[in-house]
Simulated scan of single mutants.
Amino acid sequence: MTTQVFPILDKTFVEQLIPQKFPFVMVDKLLLYEEGSVTAGLTIVTDNIFTAEAIFQESGLIEHMAQSVAIYTGYQYFLKNEPAPTGYIGSINGIQIQRLPKLGEDVVTEVTILQEFMGVTLVEMCSTIAGEVIATGKMKTVIAGANE
Protein backbone atom coordinates (compact mmCIF):
# COMPACT_ATOMS: atom_id res chain seq x y z
CA MET A 1 0.00 0.00 0.00
CA THR A 2 1.22 3.45 -0.90
CA THR A 3 1.11 6.22 1.66
CA GLN A 4 -1.13 9.01 0.45
CA VAL A 5 -0.22 12.65 0.79
CA PHE A 6 -3.09 15.06 1.33
CA PRO A 7 -4.76 16.69 -0.42
CA ILE A 8 -5.62 13.95 -2.93
CA LEU A 9 -6.76 15.69 -6.11
CA ASP A 10 -6.73 12.65 -8.42
CA LYS A 11 -10.44 12.34 -9.36
CA THR A 12 -10.02 8.75 -10.55
CA PHE A 13 -8.54 7.68 -7.22
CA VAL A 14 -11.19 9.61 -5.25
CA GLU A 15 -13.99 7.95 -7.25
CA GLN A 16 -12.65 4.51 -6.25
CA LEU A 17 -13.27 5.38 -2.59
CA ILE A 18 -17.06 5.71 -2.99
CA PRO A 19 -19.65 3.39 -4.53
CA GLN A 20 -21.25 6.12 -6.69
CA LYS A 21 -20.23 6.36 -10.34
CA PHE A 22 -20.42 9.13 -12.95
CA PRO A 23 -22.65 11.15 -13.30
CA PHE A 24 -23.59 10.80 -9.61
CA VAL A 25 -20.12 11.51 -8.14
CA MET A 26 -20.33 14.61 -5.94
CA VAL A 27 -16.80 14.61 -4.47
CA ASP A 28 -13.69 15.22 -6.57
CA LYS A 29 -11.00 15.65 -3.92
CA LEU A 30 -10.05 14.21 -0.55
CA LEU A 31 -8.46 17.06 1.34
CA LEU A 32 -7.80 15.44 4.72
CA TYR A 33 -8.40 12.13 6.46
CA GLU A 34 -7.71 11.33 10.07
CA GLU A 35 -9.31 9.04 12.61
CA GLY A 36 -12.67 10.60 13.45
CA SER A 37 -12.87 13.14 10.63
CA VAL A 38 -12.55 13.71 6.93
CA THR A 39 -12.60 16.73 4.64
CA ALA A 40 -13.74 16.36 1.04
CA GLY A 41 -14.28 18.84 -1.75
CA LEU A 42 -16.16 19.45 -4.97
CA THR A 43 -15.69 22.07 -7.65
CA ILE A 44 -19.04 23.08 -9.16
CA VAL A 45 -18.97 22.56 -12.93
CA THR A 46 -21.51 23.05 -15.74
CA ASP A 47 -21.92 19.37 -16.59
CA ASN A 48 -22.78 18.34 -13.00
CA ILE A 49 -26.30 16.87 -13.07
CA PHE A 50 -27.26 18.98 -10.05
CA THR A 51 -26.12 22.28 -11.60
CA ALA A 52 -28.97 24.35 -13.04
CA GLU A 53 -28.61 27.91 -14.31
CA ALA A 54 -25.08 28.12 -12.86
CA ILE A 55 -26.29 27.16 -9.34
CA PHE A 56 -25.61 23.84 -7.58
CA GLN A 57 -29.00 22.66 -6.32
CA GLU A 58 -29.94 21.70 -2.73
CA SER A 59 -30.24 18.00 -3.61
CA GLY A 60 -26.72 18.06 -5.03
CA LEU A 61 -25.32 19.77 -1.94
CA ILE A 62 -26.95 17.18 0.35
CA GLU A 63 -25.63 14.37 -1.88
CA HIS A 64 -22.16 15.96 -1.72
CA MET A 65 -22.39 15.96 2.07
CA ALA A 66 -23.46 12.29 2.07
CA GLN A 67 -20.61 11.31 -0.25
CA SER A 68 -18.20 13.18 2.03
CA VAL A 69 -19.33 10.76 4.74
CA ALA A 70 -18.96 7.82 2.32
CA ILE A 71 -15.40 8.81 1.45
CA TYR A 72 -14.45 8.47 5.13
CA THR A 73 -15.53 4.82 5.13
CA GLY A 74 -14.13 4.28 1.64
CA TYR A 75 -10.70 5.52 2.68
CA GLN A 76 -10.78 3.27 5.77
CA TYR A 77 -11.39 0.31 3.45
CA PHE A 78 -8.66 1.51 1.05
CA LEU A 79 -6.21 1.44 3.96
CA LYS A 80 -7.25 -2.21 4.54
CA ASN A 81 -6.88 -2.89 0.79
CA GLU A 82 -10.59 -3.72 0.46
CA PRO A 83 -13.21 -2.28 -1.94
CA ALA A 84 -15.43 0.56 -0.73
CA PRO A 85 -18.72 -0.77 0.65
CA THR A 86 -22.16 0.41 -0.41
CA GLY A 87 -23.90 2.49 2.19
CA TYR A 88 -27.25 4.17 2.63
CA ILE A 89 -28.45 7.33 4.30
CA GLY A 90 -30.32 6.25 7.42
CA SER A 91 -31.42 9.73 8.43
CA ILE A 92 -30.70 13.40 7.84
CA ASN A 93 -31.24 15.85 10.69
CA GLY A 94 -31.16 19.60 10.96
CA ILE A 95 -29.75 20.37 7.52
CA GLN A 96 -29.47 24.13 7.26
CA ILE A 97 -28.46 25.62 3.93
CA GLN A 98 -27.45 29.27 4.09
CA ARG A 99 -26.73 29.55 0.37
CA LEU A 100 -26.18 27.42 -2.70
CA PRO A 101 -22.82 27.15 -4.48
CA LYS A 102 -22.32 28.85 -7.82
CA LEU A 103 -20.55 27.62 -10.92
CA GLY A 104 -16.77 27.49 -10.39
CA GLU A 105 -16.91 27.59 -6.59
CA ASP A 106 -15.16 24.98 -4.45
CA VAL A 107 -17.29 23.40 -1.75
CA VAL A 108 -15.32 21.97 1.17
CA THR A 109 -17.14 19.67 3.57
CA GLU A 110 -15.73 18.68 6.92
CA VAL A 111 -17.26 15.59 8.48
CA THR A 112 -16.81 14.80 12.17
CA ILE A 113 -17.64 11.27 13.27
CA LEU A 114 -19.78 11.43 16.41
CA GLN A 115 -20.41 7.71 16.73
CA GLU A 116 -19.55 4.58 14.75
CA PHE A 117 -20.94 1.16 15.68
CA MET A 118 -21.73 -2.02 13.72
CA GLY A 119 -21.75 -0.30 10.33
CA VAL A 120 -23.83 2.66 11.49
CA THR A 121 -22.09 6.03 11.47
CA LEU A 122 -23.48 9.24 12.97
CA VAL A 123 -21.77 12.40 11.79
CA GLU A 124 -21.87 16.16 11.94
CA MET A 125 -21.16 18.00 8.68
CA CYS A 126 -20.18 21.53 7.78
CA SER A 127 -19.82 22.75 4.18
CA THR A 128 -17.96 25.95 3.37
CA ILE A 129 -16.88 28.01 0.41
CA ALA A 130 -13.70 30.06 0.98
CA GLY A 131 -14.28 29.79 4.73
CA GLU A 132 -17.95 30.90 4.59
CA VAL A 133 -20.31 28.32 6.12
CA ILE A 134 -22.98 27.48 3.54
CA ALA A 135 -24.55 24.32 5.04
CA THR A 136 -24.54 22.28 8.25
CA GLY A 137 -26.31 19.21 9.52
CA LYS A 138 -26.17 15.70 10.92
CA MET A 139 -26.51 12.42 9.08
CA LYS A 140 -26.65 8.76 9.95
CA THR A 141 -25.36 6.28 7.37
CA VAL A 142 -25.55 2.51 7.32
CA ILE A 143 -23.22 0.13 5.47
CA ALA A 144 -25.23 -2.39 3.43
CA GLY A 145 -25.29 -5.80 5.09
CA ALA A 146 -23.36 -4.61 8.13
CA ASN A 147 -25.95 -5.85 10.61
CA GLU A 148 -26.88 -9.11 8.87
Rank of each mutant, 00 (worst) to 15 (best):
L100V: 07
P19I: 09
Q4N: 13
S68I: 02
P23M: 13
Y33E: 10
T121C: 11
N81R: 00
I18G: 06
K11S: 03
D10W: 15
E132H: 12
T112Y: 08
K29L: 07
Y72C: 11
F78R: 03
Q67H: 06
A66K: 03
M65C: 03
T109P: 08
C126G: 10
I18T: 12
I55G: 08
G90T: 09
P85C: 05
V25N: 05
I113M: 09
V111W: 06
E34H: 08
V133R: 09
T46G: 12
L17S: 07
L100E: 06
I8Q: 04
T3F: 00
Q20P: 03
S37W: 03
Y77S: 10
Y33N: 05
G90K: 09
V107W: 02
G60E: 05
G119R: 02
K102W: 13
T3W: 04
T112F: 12
T73I: 11
T2V: 13
F24Q: 02
A84V: 11
F56K: 07
N93M: 13
Q57P: 15
E53R: 02
I129R: 03
N48Q: 12
Y88R: 05
F50C: 07
T12Y: 15
N81F: 15
D47T: 13
V123Q: 02
Y77G: 08
I97W: 04
T128P: 06
S59F: 10
Y33C: 10
Y33Q: 04
D47M: 11
F117W: 03
E105Y: 05
P23W: 04
I62L: 00
G131N: 14
A40R: 02
D10Y: 11
Y77K: 03
K80I: 04
L79K: 06
E124H: 08
I134V: 10
I55S: 01
S59P: 00
P7H: 05
N93P: 07
C126H: 11
Y88N: 10
C126K: 04
L42N: 00
I49T: 06
L31N: 01
G74K: 02
K80G: 11
N81Q: 08
A130D: 14
V108N: 00
I134Y: 14
R99H: 03
P85V: 03
L31T: 07
T51G: 14
T121H: 05
L9R: 05
N48P: 14
T12L: 10
V38A: 07
N48I: 12
E35K: 11
F50M: 13
I129E: 04
Q16H: 15
T112N: 15
E82G: 04
P7C: 14
E15D: 14
L122E: 07
I134L: 03
T121R: 03
F22G: 13
E124P: 14
V38P: 01
K21I: 01
T86A: 13
S91I: 05
G94M: 12
V107G: 01
E110H: 12
E15K: 04
Q16R: 01
T2D: 14
L61I: 01
D10Q: 12
P83G: 14
I44G: 15
E34F: 15
V108P: 11
T3E: 00
V38K: 01
T121E: 11
E63I: 06
G90C: 15
V5W: 14
Q96S: 13
E34G: 13
Q4T: 11
L17M: 03
G94K: 09
G74P: 07
M65A: 01
I8A: 12
I129S: 13
P83Q: 11
I18R: 01
G119I: 09
S91E: 09
L31S: 07
V108Y: 11
